[in-house]
Design a protein around this nucleic acid. Structure first.
Lengths: 350, 350
DNA sequence: TTGTAAGCGTTATCAG
DNA sequence: CTGATAACGCTTACAA
């Protein structure tokens, strides 16, 4: 039973509650030894709620991700936790991509946490407009609610990454390059499509509407999108897939259809994976440091919690890197690095 | 600013605080309409801390896992969250396999949560012995602290699963069967080794000490263990690997050493993975429902929170299943099912 | 149904 | 350095 209160301790030692409280806060008190002993004897532990009620702080930060089960989001969470150190503990909300659950969860957050790291499932919601009232700072990661300025964010360099991916395919001689994209209404979906289109344009490759498939960032979506591409009269010879889950789906579709990668179709994905070098064939991807994104988000948030909005909102970006393995073939040698060797050069820019 | 208090609302309407409080608790009050309006106008939201201080409940459950980044643990977390529903929110602690951080985190938990779902990183710690004092119920998942009875737990059927794995290899005609095991001091490490040994014994295969390698459940550990096995004068022809991460490491070692799976060596892993059917070759594994484990743990915990320990501790177990793909070869046809087709028959037994 | 008042456990203020 | 006292915002007897 840990229901001993500060008053019990005070009584036992024969001092006032305030003295014990001061001892606990590290002030010098006369009977510190006997207080120490009494605390141990009574197995006293301060009541956090009472403390919080006084201070108005909770020592908690909420992290909302669409799905912890996605290794990419898990890495963000882990990065945030590491950056929080001993100062803050994490409340995790993983809504399973359900915007309604997410909204409900946000509503329940008020008063429970000192800040929020937020990877929204859908970006066209308007719950967030209530945040102005919600009395705690918010940092967006990877996605950012439409038309919402005034918030900090930590994004990936989607355009550059997607352009690198597309250029890599172009360098291999492809011109029939498809793109299985995330929702055009999402920050990463939009950004990556922009990068893809920009790269095509720069290479003077005419864009083919059949080769742009908007999907939904899920395994099933990627599977269906790839099936659609395979059904085309004139199949693409290369595909850039817009995220990790859709890449898995696309690969399953290719495998099921017995289409050889990279000989019949080259594949490049966005976001790396622990198993990317073990799949058949080892997967060439654009990678970025999700752990770092989480950590940056947390440190930005902690600054806000400490200092408020005296500084203007930050828009952080994390670099993307090309990790070349074998799913695009190896005809293009000049860009080739050791397969399976990650180039970990993630850095940040504002 | 959400700093309006119940007293502000009361003042605005011209009633007492208790009336507003009653309205909030769903009681019938005369001026409910005007109270409703005042709450909206003032943007009043109840202060959770104050409420908690009164009730002594936090509405939070802690979930401690060694690493959220491991998809298996992520699934446990997600399962727990789903089972929690709207009643409880999750505090996540993922210590990166650091027992010291874990211990520190546990210490800070008291008073913050109403209960704990605990997957310990190390099972020989004794922090947990303080739990008796810690005033909140604990449910262990997957692992269980040494010599600790009196707690609820939700484990996997490690023995049976490991025996299935080993038998599968035996059915393929193997007799030189190695086992890359987790720590013998851990529940799953120990259980799976027992299953492995039992299956060997039943098949009257003499056990070879070189073929038992105790490792640490990490990718690197699995890699090194496999490298060790490959260096043996008399290599095993089949390996049962004790968890998902070590299996990844083992596969990397095999790939690097250009050893063909399954022709030169058959591999079976413990715990399935989203990508298991895409790796080369598609991986045969023992699978169990981690999501279910998390959910069962949560519902058990919620019972304890509600009803206390009036019922004796439950020891739940989740079934393991054999998922046959191609990493063990296909010489043994009678057990063969459609490759890549999961048999989802997870159920529970006490 | 309503209001008054006490109390949850802590910390901050202010006199001593 | 110490102790009494008043908050923090809410709930809940108890009385009206």
């Amino acid at each position: 039973m840990s229901n001993a209160t500060i008053s019990d301790v005070a009584k036992k030692v024969g001092v006032s509650e305030s003295t014990v409280s001061r001892y606990l806060s590290g002030f010098k008190v006369r009977n510190s030894e006997s207080i120490k002993k009494a605390i141990k004897d009574l197995n006293y532990r301060p009541n956090i709620m009472a403390r919080n009620l006084k201070s108005g702080k909770t020592g908690m930060v909420a992290v909302i991700v669409p799905d912890v089960t996605n290794p990419f989001f898990a890495a963000i969470v882990r990065g945030a936790e590491v950056a929080a150190g001993d100062d803050y503990m994490l409340q995790l909300i993983s809504t399973g991509d359900d915007p309604e659950k997410e909204e409900a969860a946000i509503r329940r957050l008020s008063g429970r946490v000192d800040g929020l790291i937020y990877v929204p499932a859908k970006e066209d919601t308007d719950v967030i407009t209530e945040f102005a009232d919600y009395s705690f700072p918010v940092v967006f990661v990877d996605r950012v609610i439409n038309n919402l300025r005034g918030f900090d964010s930590v994004l990936a360099d989607n355009q550059t990454g997607a352009a690198m991916a597309t250029n890599h395919l172009i360098d291999h001689g492809h011109t029939a390059i498809a793109h299985i994209a995330g929702p055009a209404a999402s920050t990463p979906g939009k950004g990556r499509t922009e990068g893809y289109l920009a790269a095509l344009k720069k290479a003077k490759i005419e864009k083919n509407h059949d080769y742009y498939v908007e999907s939904d960032f899920t395994v099933l979506g990627g599977y269906q999108a790839m099936m659609g591409l395979l059904a085309l009269k004139r199949r693409p010879t290369a595909v850039f897939v817009g995220n990790n889950l859709m890449t898995i789906g696309a690969l399953k579709a290719l495998k099921e259809s017995k289409v050889n990668v990279p000989d019949e179709i080259a594949v490049i994905g966005f976001d790396d994976h622990e198993l990317s070098d073990l799949v058949d064939p080892p997967l060439t991807v654009i990678s970025r440091d999700a752990h770092l994104q989480g950590a940056l988000a947390m440190s930005t948030l902690l600054e806000r919690i400490r200092d408020g909005y005296q500084f203007p909102p930050k828009q952080l970006k994390v670099d993307s890197n090309l990790v070349i393995r074998q799913s695009c073939g190896s005809t293009c040698l000049y860009r080739k690095t050791d397969a399976d060797k990650k180039i970990l050069s993630s850095s940040t820019s504002s």
